[in-house]
Design a protein around this nucleic acid. Structure first.
Length: 199
DNA sequence: CGCCTTTGACCAGCGC
DNA sequence: GCGCTGGTCAAAGGCG
C-alpha cells in the first residue's frame, strides 16, 4: 500500500506552497510538507520515532524523543496499529491508531493533500481559543481521519493530525508523482535526505 | 440529486 | 457517582 501526501491538486491551494513544517529548535530547517509524508502500514522506524514529540493539544499522544537533527522535532507522530471500525470498541483507549501530526505554518487551515475529506465534527477544545475540526476521508471504505486545529500558542500554525492509512491512492497521485513521488519503502531515506539537503 | 458543512446531541473515558 | 472533556453521530440545510 502506498500512502502519499503532498499538494497534488491540479488547482492547488495558493497558500499551501508556503506551508512548511518548521523545527522550532532549529528554525532554519524547514521542509515543504509535501516533501516527506509517506506512511507505511504498521511499522515504526527510527525516523518516525525521531520526530515524535507530544504537543499539549495532543494529550493522547505520548511524547517520545525529539531529534532536532532530522528537522522533525516539531511534528508529532505516533505509529501504532490501526483498527478501522466504528462500532463496538470505538473510543476505547486501547484502540490505537496510526497517527501523524504536522505543525505547519499556513494561512489556511485546510491544506489540500490530494485526498478528499468530509468534515464530520467540530469541537472547541479546552485551553485553546481555536476549534478543532474533524475530517474523514471520502474515499470508499477508507476510514482515515484527520483533525485540524490552529496552534493555540501561535495561530499562524496549523496542527493537522492524520489517523490511519488510506486504502486507496490519492485521486491526484499522477500529478503528485511529477512533483515528489516517494515510495513508502524509501521514505526513511527520503526524510533523512531532506533533513540534510533541501530539494 | 448528491455531497458537503454545520451544529447540537450523544457517548465513553477519565479524574476527582 | 458525577462532571468534564474529546470524539462521533446524524439531522438539517446549503450548494453546485
Amino acid at each position: 500500500m502506498e500512502y502519499y501526501f503532498g499538494n497534488p491538486n491540479p488547482n492547488p491551494n495558493p497558500y499551501f506552497h508556503h506551508s512548511t513544517v518548521t523545527n522550532v529548535a532549529s528554525p532554519s530547517s524547514e521542509l515543504m510538507l509535501s516533501d516527506y509524508l509517506v506512511l507505511e502500514d504498521g511499522t515504526v522506524d527510527h525516523h518516525q520515532e525521531s520526530w515524535s514529540q507530544s504537543t499539549e493539544t495532543e494529550s493522547s499522544e505520548k511524547a517520545t524523543s525529539s531529534d532536532a537533527t532530522h528537522g522533525f522535532a516539531d511534528a508529532t507522530s505516533t505509529i501504532n496499529n490501526m483498527k478501522c471500525k466504528s462500532d463496538g470498541n470505538k473510543r476505547k483507549k486501547e484502540e490505537v491508531s496510526q497517527s501523524v501530526t504536522f505543525r505547519t505554518r499556513s494561512q489556511l487551515e485546510i491544506m489540500d493533500d490530494g485526498y478528499k475529506w468530509r468534515k464530520y465534527g467540530k469541537k472547541t477544545v479546552k485551553n485553546s481559543p481555536n476549534p478543532r475540526n474533524y475530517y474523514k476521508c471520502s474515499g470508499e471504505g477508507c476510514c482515515v481521519k484527520k483533525r485540524v486545529e490552529r496552534d493555540r500558542d501561535d495561530s499562524s500554525y496549523v496542527l493537522t493530525t492524520y489517523e490511519g492509512v488510506h486504502n486507496h491512492e490519492s485521486p491526484s497521485i499522477n500529478y503528485y508523482s511529477q512533483m515528489s513521488l516517494v515510495h513508502p519503502n524509501d521514505w526513511a531515506l527520503q526524510s533523512s535526505a531532506n533533513s540534510s539537503s533541501m530539494h
